[in-house]
Design a binder for these strands. Structure first.
Lengths: 121, 121
DNA sequence: TTGAAATATTCCCATATGGGAATATACTTT
DNA sequence: AAAGTATATTCCCATATGGGAATATTTCAA
C-alpha cells in the first residue's frame, strides 16, 4: 500500500516543497489569485492549480471567486497539528546544555559503533 | 515526476504516520532495539526495519549494535527544521484576538462567495 | 559447527505522486 | 454571441511508496 493520500493529511500535504512555498508566499503576501502564484513561484499554471487543490482538500487554503479569478487564502491554523506534534521535541534542542549533552553522547557512540555508511542519494 | 524521495527530506520522512509513531515512541522510551518497536507498534518486523531505514537516512535516528540486536536512538534535533518552518505560522492561532479576527473574516467571506463543496474522501 | 535469535533485504504488487500537454470551464468584455 | 482571460481538469507517464512474503545476514549460544 502506498502512503496515505496527500489529500487527507496535513503532514503529507506539506511534504511537497512547492506546496510549502505556496503556503509561505500566501502567509507573507496575503490572499492571492492563482495568476500571482504562477508568476511568483515560476511554476506552470496547471501545477499551481493542482497544488492548490491538495492544499484546499486539507483545508490549508480556501478559495473565493472574485471576478474571473479565484483568490486563495491561507488557513494557517490548520498547521497547528503539525506545530503541536513537533513542539514535543523542542526541548531536545532548545537549551544549550542539552545540545552539549547530545553532542557528547553522539561522539561517544560514534567511537563504540560503526555507523552504517550513508547510502548515496 | 513523483514526490521527492522520503529518504532525502525530513518533511517527507515524517509524512508517514507509522514513522511519526516510531519517533514518538523512541522519544518517550529512549533508545530501543527493533524487537521492542515491533512489539510496541504491532507492525510486522520488516515494516519496522524499513521505516527505521528511512528515518536513518534522514538522520532522524541512529543505530548502534548491542549484542545481536540493533538499538535505535532518536536524533530529535533533526526535527528542528520542521519546527522552525511551522513556527512561522504560530502567531496566527496563538492569540485569542487573532483567532476571533480570523473567524470574523471567514464568516464574511462565506457570505460573499460559495465555497466549492468539500470532496468526499 | 550447528542452530536459533534478531534484524535487514529482496521481490512483487497495487496505488499515489507530480509533471507536461492538451483541453475544458467559467466569467467578462466587446 | 464571440472572443479573451483566468483557472481547473483530464490524460498520460515515469517513478516512489509501503505492505506482504520469503529469504538473507549477522551474531550469539550450545
Amino acid at each position: 500500500m502506498p502512503r496515505a493520500a496527500t489529500t487527507s493529511d496535513v503532514f503529507n500535504a506539506i511534504a511537497e516543497p512547492r506546496r510549502r512555498e505556496i503556503i509561505q508566499f500566501l502567509a507573507q503576501s496575503g490572499e492571492q489569485p492563482v495568476g500571482t502564484l504562477v508568476h511568483a513561484m515560476r511554476i506552470p499554471q496547471p501545477a499551481v492549480s493542482k497544488h492548490l487543490n491538495v492544499l484546499r482538500r486539507v483545508r490549508l487554503v480556501s478559495v473565493s471567486r472574485r471576478g474571473r479569478s479565484r483568490v486563495y487564502r491561507l488557513n494557517p491554523q490548520e498547521l497547528k497539528p503539525v506545530h503541536d506534534w513537533v513542539k514535543n521535541f523542542e526541548r531536545y534542542w532548545s537549551t544549550q546544555l542539552l545540545r552539549i549533552k547530545a553532542r557528547a553522547e553522539e561522539k561517544a557512540r560514534e567511537q563504540k559503533t560503526t555507523q552504517p555508511p550513508e547510502e548515496k542519494q
